[in-house]
Amino acid sequence: MLIPCPHCGDRDVSEYSYLGDATIKRPNQEKANPHKWETFVYNRQNPRGPHKELWQHNGGCRLIVEITRDTISHEILSMKATGPHKTGLGK
């Protein structure tokens, strides 16, 4: 499988570390209730089909990329950079 990196182009999956579901949002530290934390830490939608997920190019530029990938065909449907450097990178 080739994972696209906005800096480095398409790179082999072995250069990346998979960081999982990109849709889970970390709860607000001050306000969130325990259920929200449980959901954040443990619960996953785990869809069959398009899945928004995070991959880190840690065998390369170390950028964390948010990718939508079909979990049945492994086809990559979209890609964008995350983090403070995301401006100007990705689609």
């Binding site: 999982g20 579901d21 959901t39 443990y42 619960n43 996953r44 939608q45 785990n46 869809p47 069959r48 979990t71």
Partner: peptide, 19 residues
């Protein structure tokens, strides 16, 4: 292998499982 999928049909959207 299909737990999330089948459980979704019962209305359970989230489980501590990844396939």
């Amino acid at each position: 292998g299909n737990t999330s999928d089948v459980m979704r049909k019962a209305g359970i959207e989230n489980l501590p499982i990844e396939s």
